[in-house]
């Protein structure tokens, strides 16, 4: 009786509804989807054979290449733009901090579709950026900023920027300012201090931030679908096409499984990275 009583008082029970919801809305449909489609396909050997054919097909290889290339590009761009912003956030107070944080958080809570369409207004052939460049004489005919890899990259970089900024900010906030002070007191220039003290101390934040962005980028759908061109097909778009246009559920299942496997593998690395960080007490 008392043991049951104790069990009821365990605060970890509070997580049960969340796990239940996740299982019901996410895990169960996913498993059912895979089981159903694979059962239709026949034996295990047949499935494996089919999977290899699909994965090795020109279309899929192209999509995988595009996906990885764009994800990599977006990761690097978010890092390069996010690092200084995170640094600024970690080193400013009150009003400035709140203002910059506001500018990052508000878009984060706005629908991806809304933000993507806003970018399309800016980047279009007759968009604000092209108009500005034309009128200032920078270019003499409009540049294609949309419906190509450049458009996808710009859009995704913008959407994914908050993730890397918040990860980097958390890491930077934990860096004891005495380390940079000590470096400067001992004769290191600002550049030397940054390269040899600050950057190494924020390195695991860089790694986790990049992993998060990369993981999210490889599964991206809306932004590349709206801002990309007909040749720029990412893996998530391919899955959507298999389901919506081809009605080829087995192929969609195989591709989904592939994407899921890659994502889980990267999450495993991410988990290890953050775990090591905790071990070091930073």
């Amino acid at each position: 009786m008392s043991r049951i009583d104790k069990l009821w008082r365990d605060p970890s029970l509070l997580i049960v509804p969340a796990i239940g919801l996740l299982a019901l809305g996410f895990v169960v449909p996913l498993v059912l989807f895979f089981v159903d489609t694979f059962r239709e396909m026949g034996s295990l050997a047949e499935i494996a054979n089919e999977a290899l054919t699909v994965i090795a097909s020109r279309e899929v290889v192209d999509a995988m290449f595009t996906t990885n290339w764009i994800a990599l590009l977006v990761t690097l761009l978010t890092l390069v733009t996010g690092y200084p912003i995170a640094y600024y956030l970690a080193n400013s107070q009150r009003l400035r901090f709140t203002l910059v944080l506001f500018c990052i958080i508000v878009p984060y809570f706005t629908s991806v579709i809304v933000r993507t369409y806003s970018w399309m207004v800016l980047l279009g052939r007759n968009g604000i950026i092209n108009e500005l460049m034309l009128s200032s004489g920078l270019v003499d005919h409009p540049i294609a900023l949309l419906y190509n890899k450049l458009g996808i990259t710009i859009g995704m970089t913008y959407v994914l920027l908050p993730y890397i900024i918040m990860t980097l900010y958390a890491t930077m906030k934990a860096i004891d300012p005495n380390f940079t002070r000590a470096a400067q007191a001992l004769g290191a220039s600002r550049t030397y201090t940054f390269l040899h003290v600050y950057l190494p101390l924020s390195a695991h934040g860089v790694l986790s931030g990049c992993l998060i962005v990369f993981i999210l980028a490889i599964g991206f759908f809306i932004t590349p679908a709206l801002m990309g061109g007909p040749k720029d097909v990412m893996i998530a778009m391919l899955i959507e096409r298999q389901v919506e246009l081809m009605l080829d559920w087995p192929n969609a299942a195989i591709l989904s499984l592939l994407l899921l496997a890659v994502t889980l593998a990267l999450y495993a690395i991410y988990y290890r990275v953050t775990d090591v960080r905790r071990m070091m007490g930073a």
């Binding site: 004891d176 005495n178 380390f179 002070r181 000590a182 470096a183 007191a185 001992l186 003290v197 190494p200 101390l201 390195a203 070091m280 930073a282």
Partner: peptide
């Protein structure tokens, strides 16, 4: 040269 109260030994 400078010595700080909390040592500030670079952890990396």
């Amino acid at each position: 040269g400078m010595v700080f109260q909390n040592y500030a030994i670079f952890p990396h």
